[in-house]
Amino acid sequence: MTEATRPVRIGLQLQPQHADYAAIRRTASEAEELGADIVFNWDHFYPLSGEPEGKHFECWTMLGAWAESTSRVEIGALVTCNSYRNPDLLADMARTVDHISGGRLILGIGAGWFEKDYVEYGYDFGTAGSRIADLGEALPRIENRLAKLNPAPTRKIPVLIGGGGEKKTLRLVAKHADIWHGFGDVEVASRKLKILDQHCADVGRDPAEIERSVGVQGDPAESGPKLLDLGITTFTVGVGGPDYDLSQLRKWIAWRDAQNG
C-alpha cells in the first residue's frame, strides 16, 4: 500500500448528547474557526455514554441548521442509520441540505447497531445481517433518487460508509462509497484496508478513488504517521457534551498543518 497522496483532513464528531443546542451550535462554529475540515454529528436518539436518558438531539434537522450556521466546513452524519428513513426520502433530505449548505454535505451512512434507538422508536432491529442487507438495497435507491431530483444536487454528494465488516460492509464500500470510515488501531486499519483493496479489485474499482478515514484519539504524533502510511488521510476526533473540550481537535489540526505544509 502506497503512502497517501490526498491532503490530510481533520474532522470533529460533535456528539449531540448531554448539551443544550446553543452549546452544540457554538462548538460547530468554533471548530470551523479553528480550521476543522469537517464537522460531523451522529444519528442516534439517545446518548451513547453517560446518563442513558440524558439530553439528546436528532441528526438531520441539526444538519439543516448547521448548513445555515456554518459557511466553510463540510458537514454530515457519522453516520446516518439506514434503518430510520426511507432511502428515497434520505436522498431528498441530503440533496436539500446540500443546497442549503452550498455543496458542503457528506452523506455518511451505515447499517445501524444501537438497539435502544430501534426499540424506543418502533423500528425493527432485525439482525446484523438483515441490517447490512437493507443497506445494500438502500444504496442503489439513494443513487437513483439523487439522479432524478429537480433541482439536482450542487455536486456529486460524497457518500461515506462507516463500518468494518469484512465480507459485506467493505464490499458495499468498494461498490458505492467515496469515503470509508473505520475505527481501530493501526493493525486493525491495515487489515481492513487490505480487504477493502481486494473487494475493489473484485468489483473492478480503483481503490485510490476511495478516501480513507478513521476515528482518532490521543497524540497525533504517535498514531498519525502510521495511519498516514496506510493511505488514511482523514482523521476525526470525537467530543461529547456538555462542555465540548476541543483541545484534542487543536492538536490534530496543528499536526495536519505540519503534514500539508
Rank of each mutant, 00 (worst) to 15 (best):
M1G: 15
T2G: 15
T5Q: 14
R6G: 12
R6W: 08
P7K: 13
I10A: 08
G11A: 06
G11W: 03
L14W: 11
Q17I: 03
D20A: 11
D20W: 11
A22Y: 09
A23W: 08
R26V: 08
T27M: 06
E30C: 04
A31G: 02
E32K: 03
D37S: 04
N41Y: 10
H44R: 06
H44P: 08
F45K: 04
F45P: 05
Y46K: 07
Y46F: 14
P47D: 08
P47R: 02
P47W: 01
S49G: 08
S49H: 03
S49R: 05
G50F: 04
E53M: 09
G54M: 08
F57P: 02
E58M: 00
T61E: 14
M62Y: 12
A65E: 10
E68L: 09
S71W: 06
V73M: 13
E74H: 09
G76L: 00
L78S: 07
L78P: 02
V79I: 14
V79H: 12
T80A: 15
T80R: 01
C81G: 15
N82I: 07
S83T: 12
Y84F: 15
N86S: 05
N86T: 03
L90P: 14
A91T: 04
A91R: 04
M93F: 00
A94E: 09
S101C: 02
G102C: 06
G103H: 07
L105H: 07
L105M: 06
I109V: 11
A111Q: 10
G112S: 01
F114W: 04
F114P: 05
E115P: 02
E120V: 06
E120C: 04
Y121G: 01
Y123D: 04
F125K: 04
G129S: 00
S130N: 00
S130R: 05
I132P: 10
A133C: 07
A133S: 14
A133M: 11
E137T: 11
E137P: 02
E143D: 14
R145Y: 02
A147M: 11
A147E: 13
L149H: 13
L149N: 14
N150G: 09
P151V: 03
T154M: 13
R155A: 14
R155W: 11
I157S: 13
I157F: 08
P158L: 07
V159D: 10
V159I: 15
G163W: 03
G164H: 01
K167S: 15
L170F: 01
R171Y: 12
L172V: 12
V173R: 09
A174N: 12
I179P: 12
I179V: 15
H181R: 07
G182S: 12
F183T: 15
G184S: 13
D185M: 05
R191I: 10
L193G: 14
D197T: 11
H199A: 09
V203P: 11
R205H: 06
R205C: 07
P207V: 10
E209Q: 13
I210L: 04
V214I: 05
V216G: 07
Q217I: 00
D219K: 01
D219Y: 01
A221K: 07
A221M: 03
E222M: 03
D229V: 01
L230D: 05
L230Y: 00
L230G: 09
I232S: 02
T234Y: 05
F235A: 02
F235T: 00
F235W: 00
T236K: 01
V239L: 06
L246D: 07
L246P: 05
K251S: 14
I253S: 05
A258N: 14
A258S: 13
Q259F: 08
